[in-house]
Amino acid sequence: MSAPTVFEVEGVVLENLPNTSFRVKVTSSLPDNLTDKILLCHLAGRMRRNWVRLLPGDKVRLEINSLDMSKGRVIYRLK
């Protein structure tokens, strides 16, 4: 039995890293201890499968696990 511990925030891509990793800055105002934090994020498998490309400056939606708030998972590229 695992409790669901993920929540969503928005951010902006700062840097593309190897292996479809990205540095993303959180822009959501909540939760407040995360705002402006820079997280190492990977691209969700569904986005990788659909060849969604990210560039620095793109706004994205992230999924963050409350158990490790230093990493994120990019689940959507916002328009």
Binding site: A3, F7, L30, P31, D32, N33, S66, L67
Partner: peptide
């Protein structure tokens, strides 16, 4: 119940 390390963190909001 369960391990303390597996329990979700509380976040503001």
């Amino acid at each position: 119940v369960g391990k303390y390390e597996h329990s979700p963190f509380l976040v503001s909001g």
